[in-house]
Design a protein around this nucleic acid. Structure first.
Lengths: 114, 114
DNA sequence: TTAATATATGATCATATGTTCATATGTCAA
DNA sequence: TTGACATATGAACATATGATCATATATTAA
């Protein structure tokens, strides 16, 4: 399967589009965030945390999942700087790292509810 | 592995959190959108289309991917109502379906650039 | 230190996903 | 209608991913 015979059909648009595509590393970071939110288990966790801070045990109850499963997902969210945590005795409390994630969620809600 | 012995550690927070988690079908739709944006190839397509309307051939050039691969991804984006298309002769032009997706992208960019 | 609780992590496995190649469909011109 | 081009789709394959189970770590109390 070859590229369009006439090479590029609409040069001006292609240039504009290319300029609008973020750099590879930025693009990758963006996909990472979306990927983090693309799993129902993780999105549950994130929407729960957008209400208030919760410990792993609470999150397991909210999500109806095992604590192990929740912990695995939290690790992913932690690595992506989507959640922060603080230890308090035996418990570890998680909360959203910043408000951008909240914005992402409310935007997607709007999109869905149309 | 059992649930927390004391059942639920923080009842009030858990209730708030549960109330904040969207209904299953809404949650699913949200994850679908995020999943659509969670692949580098698709995100490239979407960021390109957030600049201007493009045909499949243009998109293949912008993304540096085969037209077949692009077409497969466009199908997914189409199904999720993230892109619209119109046929003009032999070409099919794609564009974003609404502005919420643009917002999602700019939000994630902000998050990344912090 | 030992036991108990809360959380984290590694290994495994079944499933999902993206790409490629081949083929099909749709459109237009000759 | 036939041929050429643009796009779409199906099948197959390799890779990625999430859940589970077992085990490890961390904290506190006894």
């Amino acid at each position: 399967m070859e590229r369009c015979k006439e090479k590029i059909l609409h040069m001006a648009q292609v240039k504009r589009a290319v300029d609008n595509v973020p750099d590879p590393n930025i693009l990758q970071s963006m996909t990472d965030i979306f990927k983090a939110l693309s799993d129902p288990s993780r999105l549950k966790i994130v929407t729960a945390l957008s209400a208030c801070e919760l410990c792993v045990c609470d999150l397991a109850a909210v999500c109806g999942a095992s604590e192990s499963a929740v912990s695995h997902q939290l690790r992913i969210l932690r690595n992506l700087k989507i959640v922060r945590f603080r230890r308090e005795g035996k418990s570890v409390f998680y909360r959203l790292d910043d408000d951008h994630v909240k914005s992402l969620i409310s935007q997607s809600l709007q999109h869905v509810k149309e």
